[in-house]
Amino acid sequence: MSAQKPCVLLVEDEPAQREILRYNLNAEGYEVVMAENGDDALLMVDEVMPDLILLDWMLPGVSGIEICRQVKSRKETRPIPVIMLSARSEELDRVRGLETGADDYVVKPFSVSELMARVRTQLRRTRPAAVGQQLTFDDIILDGESHRVTRAGEPIKLGPTEFRLLTTLMEKPGRVWSREQLLDRVWGRDVYVDTRTVDVHVGRLRKALCKVGGDDPLRTVRGTGYSLG
């Protein structure tokens, strides 16, 4: 899996539909992990911590509505956007899905291109740099499209790993990331890297950011990991 790609958890029990959605999500540049039933989906939410969940309402075992309710009831998973997919087209069903916490509700059959647009809209909110948007924190500006970083108007030269690391931290200022979480997000889940490598690259990022002046914006949380601000 490539680092920094937005990760979509696709929960769909129908094989043909699942394959169509997987193909189109991959074509959009997303990393896709899949679950065929509600029980597996709940396990994968904790294991993967996806950037977005595409969730079918009718599933074997735990229903999509119950998965959505559990995801949105927990502080650590509440920010994950959930797009509910359902053959239920009645207004009452839409309202129920949205009141359970779904961020969007798409009725089957749907246009795949429209669904991909809805996915992009949700990710624009939670992973802005991954879809080419600009991030700002204090006097630091990161342009996800041009891959340029400036601080107080001065350009900052970063290697690819430091750029991905800063992107992750800037997308969620104030969040404390463990070393393991940073390894997953920055290096990718299929790459084995020692957690001490994170410390080395954080040190390089710190040095680059402070080289142009200003306070150190990175915070080390002892026994846990790192945070921006």
Rank of each mutant, 00 (worst) to 15 (best):
N37L: 02
T126M: 06
D104G: 04
A27S: 15
G229F: 14
R127Y: 07
P50I: 01
D56I: 05
N24G: 12
D13R: 01
L183W: 00
G101Y: 06
T195C: 06
K207T: 11
G29K: 11
N26R: 15
G38V: 04
E19T: 13
Q17R: 10
Q17A: 12
T126R: 08
L25S: 08
E36K: 11
P128F: 01
L218I: 15
V200G: 04
K157C: 13
I53F: 02
L205T: 01
M49Y: 11
T167F: 05
L218R: 03
R94T: 02
E47S: 14
V45N: 01
R219H: 13
A16C: 05
R219E: 14
V191H: 11
V45W: 01
R22G: 09
L54G: 04
D190K: 14
P50V: 04
R151Y: 03
T197C: 06
P50D: 02
D199W: 07
R175G: 02
D143V: 06
R120I: 01
G153C: 05
P60D: 07
V11R: 01
D103W: 08
L10G: 07
G61H: 01
R125E: 09
V119D: 00
G101E: 07
G64D: 00
V8W: 00
D103F: 08
M84S: 05
L166S: 09
Q181N: 06
A208P: 09
G132P: 08
L228R: 10
R175A: 11
L98D: 05
P109I: 09
D13V: 00
L43F: 04
R69C: 04
N24H: 15
E91Q: 14
I83D: 01
G38D: 03
F110R: 07
V11A: 00
L85H: 04
I80G: 01
T168M: 11
L182N: 01
D139T: 10
E14A: 11
G223M: 12
D194R: 14
R179V: 09
G97C: 08
V82I: 14
S73Y: 06
W57C: 03
L55Q: 02
D184R: 13
H201G: 03
R148H: 13
K207W: 03
E114G: 03
L165Q: 08
P217A: 10
R96S: 02
T224K: 15
Q181H: 10
E154A: 13
G225D: 07
A117S: 13
S178M: 10
A152K: 08
Y23N: 12
G144F: 08
D56K: 09
D143Y: 07
D216K: 06
Y226Q: 07
D190P: 00
S73G: 06
S146I: 09
R219V: 15
V107Q: 06
D104W: 03
D103R: 06
L25F: 12
I20Q: 10
G64T: 02
A35V: 04
M170E: 00
K5M: 11
